[in-house]
Amino acid sequence: MIDNTRRSRKHGARAAVISIFVFLLIWQAATTFTSLGILMPSPLISLSAFFKSFIVPIGPYPIFIHIYWSLVRVVPFYIVGAIAGIILGITMGWYKPVAAIFRPIFEILRPIPPIAWIPIAIVWFGIGEGSKWFLIFLAAFMNVTINSFAGARSTDPVLVGCSKMLGASDWQIFTTVVLPGSVPYIFAGLQVALSSSWATIVAAEMIRSSEGVGWIIISSQETNNSVNTLVGVVAIGIVGFILAVIMREVEAVLVKWTKRDI
């Protein structure tokens, strides 16, 4: 069994490398042999520009400083949004009156894309950092809330009955059954929310900013510098991927009980 999973993981990694390589190859071919090359730089150019940008600044800073600035905007407000989402989602999923009050509002707000919030964010929080934080908070909050809600809703009624029989109070049932039972769902939500918060950085940095990976994309678009646009895209992609991997590892450490290791 262990042997099998290890083998399948190795297969998975190999398949991932091949698929990325093939994608780059097609991209290279398309930009070399077709007129697409006029509109869009090839992967060789883009990737070398990406690596070069670690030394040669884009605008004021090299790329890693931009990434740092974007992470400083995203990570804290992702965490705040996630915590708020877990609290609201779980209580909404478990306590019916809470759901009755908040769910309708939540369901109306949920389909609104981050970009649509920009004007409102500016009115509420100005064009400084506040409105950016708000957009990132929102992206995390929405995804985590909906998943935590689903998690609490899916609490096994037999486990609840079992806990009652063993003498647990309502509050103990909430903390010892509903909460741990929701953890896999919460993590699924945290995972989606992380990608979504990170992706929101582009929208957030559309609101006046002078640094960050979103800023690279927006400013390069204004100057028609398609190589730098792609450098920004690559940076967002790679950082997003690394964040997702970190999140999965955190989950693997915290949620041991869903794994089967015999």
């Binding site: 037999v158 009955g161 079992c162 953890v183 949620v255 009980w257």
Partner: peptide
Amino acid sequence: GFVFQSTALYPW
């Protein structure tokens, strides 16, 4: 005490 058909153990 109650023993359930589905075992109803707390998986965590």
